[in-house]
Design a protein around this nucleic acid. Structure first.
Length: 579
DNA sequence: CTAAAGATGAGATTACGG
DNA sequence: CCGTAATCTCATCTTTAG
């Protein structure tokens, strides 16, 4: 595991020291968060509504004025922290107390994670949300509807999308109209489109920001968000607002007004999280719906990811040249050894761990006869899928080389050279798929002909930087926050080797990035144009047997740092614009 | 000491066939 | 409608080899 201890310099391959910002020159460690948000406006309407809601649902809980401690404990905060927060902020300052508690809950490693249990934000509006239709939609009519529409001459993709968006119960005529309208919109390149969700957005004072809570996921009760999940987060196609060669019937969206325009932000994480996680993430990130995309449309390897961003979605351009999209095209040497009974044309998701040499040897023995049994074939194919093995010789499979992964992810060959083999797999497995991300970011190219200032959180080996660079966007100033020294070195080396002229600032720990640092950068660079990053997925990813704890997990809770930092950049730049 | 190997399923979504 | 099977997943931890 990466150490969170601060290392202030690292040595690059060229022996040059990487300068790392030291936050302690601005703040003492103890008050890194102490001043956080305490001067910000709070969403008191929301909090009070939450309180009332809680009080109504649990009559036994303390009333507002009786016991301050009980009051906050009843909201689910641990008593220990409540006492501390009251001590720090004074008994009368509810706002500051809540803020402290919320900040703590976001930034602390919650070894006793379950004790943070606020009431559900969506409860207060839940009753108004029942407009969503039920899920009893998988009727026999489904296939019939699809086949009728296909017979009418519509593309199957468009039909599926129309059905997904409108519901299976929707009359055929309506669906047909929908598809036609979508086609027209595509042709006319209209930018306005109907607001997709039937779910009412949480509309409080637009000027202020909502601070929704992390949901307590083990609670057993009807959950409106589940319906919303199955309603709007369909993963069937996973093309988001479109991929090259496969546009959805509808490719427009309506963003909340206050998130339109700069600073742009782009957030990424695994698509297949525990239930409710993306709803939480979405709620924090201004109720923007995630765009789920599988990199299978950009690469020969799958990579199902969700992206939340406020980028325009019109005029996207793929990175050129178009990468190979099948295994044989991507790794041509494998073609001559590929047995006919291995039907794979695409690789599964590139992970952080690889299969062992022993496994490939066991597989070799299974197929050595030249005429393996059906059981042998089944075993071999199963293992090949599990570990992304490819045929590299007669009866011989092997794991992907790090260079293969670099290529499949869109990085330059040998991008991670210099790391140990294990670390190369690990850092690559944790990275963006460049072509996918670049496709989304491509809309920035005409907007920033003079280059961009980028705040890159959880940079890793620099996926965001590489994507922007390959788009031909000049990187004027980049602040890169990354915990792993070896990953920082990879980015620094890449930066130097490609002769980038901009300023690259490294920060080692996202938790140390405070208001002072951000404001200094914003002053110096005249603001950030893009805040980009994918927070740790360790506690969300399906491969994690031990600590798949959701957003409150030890590492994945760093999402709240992304939110915290983005929110301040937005506030600070808004303030600047007004003065 | 580092690096590799091996053991460790659940959770969510589809697909499919009554 | 339903249950069941199939599929896949930005992983963690301990042991072993060197």
């Amino acid at each position: 595991m990466d150490s969170r201890s601060s290392s202030h310099t690292a040595t690059s391959a060229k022996g040059k020291e990487i300068m790392i910002m030291d936050p302690n020159v601005y703040n003492s460690p103890d008050d890194i968060y102490a001043d956080w948000d305490t001067d910000d406006e709070l969403e008191m309407e929301f909090f009070e509504a939450t309180l009332q809601d809680k009080g109504a649902s649990s009559p036994g809980s303390s009333s507002y004025n009786s016991s301050k401690v009980d009051h906050f404990v009843s909201m689910g905060f641990p008593e220990k922290r409540v006492v501390q927060a009251i001590k720090e902020n004074g008994e009368d300052n509810d706002e500051a107390i809540l803020n402290s508690l919320l900040t703590y809950s976001a930034i602390e490693d919650t070894s006793s994670g379950d004790d943070i249990c606020l009431d559900d934000f969506s409860d207060s509006d839940g009753d108004n949300c029942r407009a969503v239709k039920g899920t009893e939609r998988y009727s026999d009519n489904k296939d019939k509807t699809i086949s009728i529409l296909v017979d009418m001459g519509y593309q199957i993709e468009d039909v599926l999308i129309a059905i997904e968006r409108c519901g299976y119960e929707t009359p055929i005529e309506e669906l047909a109209d929908y598809i036609c309208a979508a086609e027209m919109a595509k042709v006319a390149d209209v930018t306005e489109f109907r607001p997709p969700p039937q779910i009412p957005r949480i509309q409080i004072d637009k000027k202020r920001k909502a601070f929704p809570k992390v949901n307590e996921r083990h609670r057993k009760r009807p959950d409106i968000r589940r319906e919303r999940s199955s309603e709007s987060y369909s993963h069937k196609l996973m093309i988001g607002y479109g991929v090259p060669g496969c546009a959805p019937a509808v490719c427009h969206r309506k963003l909340p007004d206050h998130v339109v325009g700069p600073p742009y932000f782009y957030y990424e994480n695994v698509a297949l999280t525990p239930k409710g996680v993306w709803d939480d993430i979405s709620r924090f990130l201004y109720d923007i719906e995630p765009e789920f995309v599988d990199s299978i449309y950009f690469s020969a390897a799958a990579r199902k990811r969700g992206y939340i961003h406020n980028l325009p979605i019109d005029g996207r351009q793929p990175l050129l040249p178009i990468p190979p999209k099948t295994i044989h095209e991507a790794i041509p040497d494998t073609k001559k050894w590929w047995p006919s009974w291995d039907k794979r044309t695409k690789l599964n998701c590139l992970l952080t761990c690889i299969g062992s040499a022993q496994l490939t040897e066991r597989i070799r023995k299974r197929v050595l006869s030249g005429d393996p049994s059906e059981a042998d074939k089944q075993f071999v194919v199963e293992q090949c899928k599990k570990w992304n093995l490819v045929w590299v010789g007669k009866n011989r499979v092997a794991v992907l080389e790090p260079e293969d992964m670099e290529m499949l992810l869109g990085f330059p060959r040998f991008h991670t050279r210099g790391l140990s083999r294990t670390d190369r797999y690990k850092t690559l497995g944790n990275s963006f798929q460049i072509d996918t991300v670049a496709y989304h970011l491509s809309v920035l190219k005409p907007l920033y002909p003079n280059g961009m200032n980028v705040l890159s959180l959880f940079s890793g080996i620099g996926g965001a930087e590489v994507a922007l660079y390959k788009l031909g966007i000049t990187l004027n100033n980049v602040v890169s926050v990354e915990i792993s020294p070896s990953s920082r070195k990879v980015l620094q080396d890449w930066w130097e080797e490609n002769g980038l002229q901009g300023k690259l600032i490294h920060v080692d720990n996202v938790e140390k990035v405070d208001k002072g640092m951000l404001d200094r950068w914003i002053d110096e660079f005249n603001g950030f144009d893009l805040v980009i990053g994918g927070s740790p997925c360790n506690n969300l990813a399906g491969g994690n047997r031990r600590t798949r704890d959701g957003l409150e997990g030890e590492h994945s809770s760093l999402f709240f740092q992304y939110y915290r930092i983005l929110n301040h950049v937005r506030d600070s730049m808004k303030e600047r614009a007004l003065s």
